[in-house]
């Protein structure tokens, strides 16, 4: 049995107008929380749809849980939360959930029992109100998201694929989602999610893959990726009235490649060959009141920007998944 939950090799998908995914290879270890990162339009959703056999790659192979991804019954072991969410509006919540579970091969009576557990867990079934008996369109948006999430997990899948799971979630649901992801990992499940929000990925993922324009930019364990990109980043914070005094240092391109003003501090990427100590001395010389000077590991966000480029992100922000 393969120890990879997902093994994608040299997958290509071309649409009429453009190449959505070009020669992508990915390996997701079992039991990992894996982040598929990239700007919108990078090919994340296309890749996920190919994993789920919704669309067929032009070439390349995909294996899931050690089997070819088209083998019978394999989709029953996968839970999928698409980016665009929606359920049958006029259908009763319980019936929708039962339908989704039965589509995954869960027995009706088993599904009923699990539906009760999940509804209670997400506060959709309390002593005074059972939302399970309501129709989907009678639920608030937040509650619909919970129902959709239950539908993804009801059949107790071994591999959970979440496409942009945090988009549109309110903070409470986002927290519930994070908790659930951690719990799923503890139970040995593999979770892969796509996002363009690096903070979430950094906190949750064991491993990541960054893709842009349909190509893999880098992948690996988060800690490895960070070490690889070295400590070329400095967090610098000075007292408010000293900020103008150091501005000429920050714009010195022989020393500072990029200074990202985070309001409370600057995230500074050193120029190639520049020394952090030189930077410190120059700042001290200005007489500025230094509150913080720290050599930090770059955030995934920094790495992402360095690799994909700021333009890639901005383009992606306005584009469609």
């Amino acid at each position: 049995m393969s120890d990879l939950a997902i093994d994608i090799r040299n997958v290509v998908k071309r649409y009429a107008e453009h190449l959505a995914v070009r020669d992508l290879s990915l390996a997701v270890p079992r039991g990992a929380v894996y982040g598929l990162l990239g700007p919108n339009g990078a090919g994340k959703t296309t890749t996920i749809r190919m994993i789920l056999n919704i669309i067929i790659p032009d070439s390349g192979t995909i294996s899931l849980l050690g089997q070819p991804h088209m083998s019978a019954g394999i989709t029953d072991r996968i839970g999928y939360l698409p980016e665009e969410r929606g359920l049958y509006k006029k259908m009763q919540v319980r019936r929708v959930l039962k339908f989704l579970a039965e589509l995954k091969g869960v027995d009706g009576s088993v599904a009923e029992k699990r539906i009760d557990e999940w509804l209670e867990r997400f506060d959709l079934k309390t002593a005074d109100k059972d939302w399970g008996l309501s129709k989907i369109d009678e639920l608030s948006r937040g509650m619909q998201q919970k129902v959709q999430f239950i539908g993804t997990l009801l059949h107790d899948p071994d591999l959970i694929i979440l496409d942009e799971p945090f988009s549109g979630l309110d903070p409470i649901n986002a927290q519930a989602l994070k908790d659930t992801v951690v719990e799923l990992k503890a139970r040995g499940k593999t979770v892969i999610f796509s996002t363009h929000l690096m903070d979430n990925a950094e906190r949750l993922c064991d491993s990541v893959c960054i893709i842009a324009h349909g190509e893999k930019v880098l992948d690996g364990a988060v800690s490895d990726v960070k070490t690889e990109h070295g400590t070329r980043v400095v967090a610098l914070s000075v007292a408010g009235d000293s900020r103008s005094a150091i501005s000429h240092i920050l714009s010195d391109r022989s020393l500072v490649a990029r200074a990202d003003d985070q309001n409370r501090y600057y995230e500074i990427e050193l120029a190639p060959g520049a020394d952090a100590q030189v930077l410190l001395r120059r700042v001290v010389e200005t007489g500025a009141l230094i509150q913080r000077f720290e050599l930090v590991q770059p955030s995934l966000h920094q790495i992402f920007l360095a690799k994909v480029g700021a333009t890639g992100v901005e383009e992606g922000m306005s584009g469609q998944g």
Partner: peptide, 12 residues
């Protein structure tokens, strides 16, 4: 239009 299709076709 409700996008439920995507969930369904990932199962069937």
């Amino acid at each position: 239009t409700t996008r439920v299709a995507e969930v369904v076709v990932s199962s069937v």
